Simulated assay, not measured.
Amino acid sequence: MLFAHDTECGLIAATALVNTDDPADEGLPDVAALDRFVVTYGWTGRHEHTEAELRAVRELRPRLRRIWHADVDEIVAVVNELLRESHALPQLIRHDDEPYHLHAVPRDAPLATRMAVEAAMALADLVRAGELGRLRICAHPDCENVLVDLSKNRSRRFCEAGCGNRAAVSAYRARKAATRS
């Protein structure tokens, strides 16, 4: 593990949330999809299962996406803005058989607020560690997804949507075509 468990979880969840924002294929089309997202990424605490909550989570995505296209000063500005808006007050918390970790808003805060703060806290750790290079855009030419490279050797290039497999298949087909010529 390169970073604290809660940092890695926050980075992975923020990345996944940003990647649900696809105009061609909405990743959070309804409350049921948000429910699945909450379960998949282990969100605990308040969850209202409402259209209003879904809208609030969707509105967070473009703010987080900006981070993958920004320099360090803009990232810091976004992180500080998210923390300030949420009245974040970091505290060590233990719950659900998890070891102590940081929460900066109460567990009964709105889901979108908790998502924003968890992402901001995780990104703050990246800034402090000088590891913003781990935030990347998928290397597949037809993909706009973002990723966070948590590998030790910093070698991850493709998102979770299967782009690595598509790139490998394309390269294989190109090699095969070249040998036939």
Rank of each mutant, 00 (worst) to 15 (best):
66 R>G: 12
179 T>E: 15
80 N>T: 10
33 A>D: 07
92 L>M: 06
143 C>S: 08
51 E>S: 08
117 V>Q: 01
69 H>D: 15
89 L>N: 03
32 A>R: 13
56 A>R: 11
121 M>W: 14
71 D>Q: 02
59 E>R: 11
8 E>Q: 15
82 L>T: 06
1 M>V: 10
168 A>I: 01
128 R>L: 11
30 D>I: 02
126 L>N: 05
103 H>G: 02
138 C>M: 07
152 K>H: 10
61 R>K: 12
21 D>H: 15
33 A>F: 06
113 T>N: 01
59 E>D: 13
62 P>K: 08
158 F>A: 06
153 N>D: 14
21 D>I: 13
67 I>E: 04
59 E>N: 13
73 D>G: 13
85 E>C: 08
31 V>W: 12
167 A>Q: 11
70 A>Y: 09
159 C>G: 09
106 P>H: 09
45 G>W: 12
74 E>C: 00
124 A>E: 03
168 A>P: 04
30 D>E: 05
10 G>Q: 06
17 L>H: 14
9 C>G: 11
2 L>E: 06
46 R>P: 00
34 L>I: 08
181 S>Y: 01
47 H>E: 04
125 D>N: 06
6 D>L: 01
23 P>Q: 11
46 R>T: 05
80 N>P: 08
82 L>H: 03
128 R>F: 09
20 T>L: 05
6 D>G: 00
127 V>S: 01
139 A>H: 02
77 A>H: 12
106 P>Y: 03
160 E>C: 05
43 W>S: 00
140 H>N: 03
170 S>K: 13
146 V>E: 04
96 D>V: 12
64 L>F: 10
113 T>L: 02
126 L>A: 03
61 R>I: 02
55 R>I: 15
10 G>F: 05
66 R>V: 09
38 V>G: 07
23 P>K: 08
99 P>F: 14
94 R>H: 07
135 L>A: 00
89 L>T: 05
167 A>N: 07
103 H>A: 06
174 A>H: 08
162 G>F: 15
84 R>M: 08
84 R>T: 15
164 G>Q: 05
142 D>A: 15
66 R>Q: 14
75 I>N: 04
47 H>R: 15
73 D>T: 14
14 A>S: 11
164 G>M: 00
77 A>G: 03
94 R>E: 13
108 D>P: 11
29 P>F: 13
63 R>K: 12
137 I>W: 00
67 I>R: 03
175 R>G: 10
168 A>H: 10
168 A>C: 03
58 R>N: 04
39 V>A: 15
16 A>P: 15
83 L>M: 10
61 R>P: 05
130 G>L: 01
64 L>Q: 09
64 L>M: 10
106 P>R: 11
70 A>I: 12
1 M>A: 15
40 T>N: 11
5 H>Y: 09
7 T>A: 14
108 D>K: 07
160 E>F: 01
42 G>W: 01
117 V>M: 00
65 R>A: 12
179 T>S: 15
94 R>A: 14
96 D>H: 14
109 A>P: 03
96 D>S: 15
138 C>T: 07
58 R>F: 10
171 A>R: 15
29 P>A: 14
16 A>N: 09
24 A>F: 08
69 H>M: 11
179 T>Y: 13
159 C>W: 05
68 W>S: 07
105 V>D: 12
91 Q>F: 03
101 H>L: 02
75 I>Y: 00
125 D>G: 04
96 D>Q: 13
128 R>G: 02
134 R>C: 12
136 R>S: 10
151 S>G: 06
20 T>Y: 00
49 H>P: 03
